[in-house]
Design a protein around this nucleic acid. Structure first.
Lengths: 331, 331
DNA sequence: TTGAAAGCGATACCAG
DNA sequence: CTGGTATCGCTTTCAA
């Protein structure tokens, strides 16, 4: 079942089959077209993706490169991306850099070698090296990093605004000593979320509570929580940079007998299902995953190629951890 | 930088370059070999993966088809698989069937069209249709399903043994009315875990506690928990079919004021990080993810192609939810 | 041991 | 509007 078979069955040439399949680049008469279509139906012909890629076409495959698929935020993102590309017949080549910049670089190459039609990159790096992709002509959408040049797209959340909203909410609850679990200091994401936290505090005339830096992981949050909650002058609320850290923090509080939300209000950023199902359920700034996925896919799918920087909004999911009532259904 | 350039630089033919790169199928004299190697170094030549695949070789890409990447068990599995294939220069084409058998079928085809070197399939189906893959000659490793024929491999946990061990542990704690949250009844996985639970109960001369069927999700566990915990004759312990269900159950208990482990002992199957970080931390039958990934990858990598049915062991991680003491570090 | 050349399956140019 | 055919980069058979 190659197009040679189809051509034979349709009594035409392989070129015409190609024109029909691709709707171009040459026109085909209606009569021949239907004849070819029938032949395709008859033979059950499916174009060979690999051969097509070799000849310069598309692979109908996108790359998704994340620091850690087992981070629920990225897992849910991957799920959403799948959902969005599925309709257009694309598949996802998933790469996991395991938080390693070197590996990220290598995987970018591996992705390009496989001729993916585009790459969605959630980089471990503050500003990843995109020169290879640009040179190779592979469209890239940066996730959670602002594109360094107009050559590549990005879709980022409003980190500052979200962090500010979260902190403000804690303040409204009457919390006065509000700490922050930051992510790795070098990342813009970390800096922006810190900035939002600070600005809310400043606007309310409050001192900055303790800031501790930790990896974006449960273990990081656990460690940070232990330090924070056993130290002198314990905060009465914490804003965590992501859900994983918050889950770790919750565990630290639990182990130390610190009650959430009575003794410690907690709010977090990301809003994955981990937040909804934590005990107590975690209030959080929710990133619109479906929207992020949709934008990223749309930018990659667009012909001719376009680039854009889109900023996504956020909502606040208020649950038990900050002191808000928890509805009957957790999520 | 094609092998023509390398051939030119080495003063040899393209065929020889191929022989050197692939270590065959024809021998090459030591002298020429080093000359070619130098030329490769010099030109920075990288073989074109796509062309190589077209010419009949391999794509150095495996397919991983799961029901839901955002299920932490599969996310962690994906992570492990990545880890294991990385060294051999492979990448993972990730497909998410969203629990839909039809979609699963389509994705299998999509994977095969892309000429993946092998497929790891965690099917939604009790016995998935592998005829296409077998006909196409694509090696498949079934995860969590026993291979229906000797033509395909499988790696499965000891569902019965694991479930029995979990239930026995609950019994040792003095629990007497032990319920079970089952998965979808049609799946062998569900049936086996139920069988293990029953056999432990029978061996101890205990009556079967309530059994309720629920999807393998948090929402499923939540719903099941609500039903179980508000009904008459509430169980004093529950065994959940997977971590997601257990997390939902924990939430139901929390909402209803049922204390875990005092009023209700809980133990689960899978042992993802969700279990380690739940509050209270969940005791569970731990599946050796790294081992599963390793076996699956090894079976796919093996040349010549081999098939096998491997059963993986399990360990019990005893934590707070069953009444065991929780160490200072949760995980 | 080496090289020339025939595919692999599809694209798209150039004639007709 | 159609049909040859060169091309993509590599593998591998067949001869030398």
């Amino acid at each position: 079942m190659t197009r040679a078979d189809v051509a034979a069955a349709a009594g035409t040439s392989v070129a015409v089959v190609s024109y029909v399949v691709n709707n171009g680049p040459r026109p085909v008469s209606a009569a021949t077209r239907t004849r070819v279509l029938e032949a395709i139906e008859l033979t059950g012909y499916r174009p060979d993706v690999v051969a097509r890629a070799l000849a310069g076409g598309f692979t109908h495959t996108f790359g998704l490169l994340v620091p850690d698929v087992s981070n629920r935020f990225f897992a849910e993102l991957a799920h959403q991306v799948e959902e969005h590309v599925y309709a257009s017949g694309h598949l996802i080549l998933l790469a996991d850099s395991a938080d390693d910049p070197v590996r990220e670089r290598e995987l970018m190459n591996a992705l390009m070698e496989r001729r993916v039609d585009g790459i969605m990159l959630a980089s471990v790096d503050a500003d990843p090296d995109l020169s290879g992709a640009i040179a190779g002509g592979t469209p890239v959408v940066l996730l959670d990093r602002i594109a360094p040049s107009a050559l590549t797209s990005s879709v980022v959340p409003d980190n500052i605004g979200g962090a500010r909203a979260a902190t403000e909410h804690l303040i409204e609850h009457g919390r006065r000593r509000i700490g922050f679990i930051a992510g790795p200091a070098a990342l813009p994401t970390s800096q922006d979320r810190a900035a939002g936290w600070e600005s809310a505090l400043a606007a309310a005339g409050l001192e900055r509570g303790p800031l501790v830096e930790a990896p974006f992981s449960r273990a990081g949050g656990l460690e940070a929580g232990r330090r924070l909650l056993t130290g002198p002058d314990r905060p009465d609320a914490m804003f965590a940079s992501n859900d994983q850290q918050a889950v770790g923090l919750l565990r630290a509080a639990h182990d130390l007998g610190v009650r959430v939300p009575q003794d410690l209000g907690v709010i977090t950023f990301d809003g994955s299902q981990d937040a909804a199902f934590a005990i107590p359920s975690l209030s959080s700034v929710v990133q619109p995953l479906a929207e992020i996925a949709e934008h990223a896919v749309r930018l990659l799918l667009a012909r001719p190629h376009v680039t854009a920087r889109v900023t996504t909004g956020h909502t606040l999911a208020l649950r038990a951890s900050c002191g808000c009532p928890d509805g009957p259904t957790a999520p």
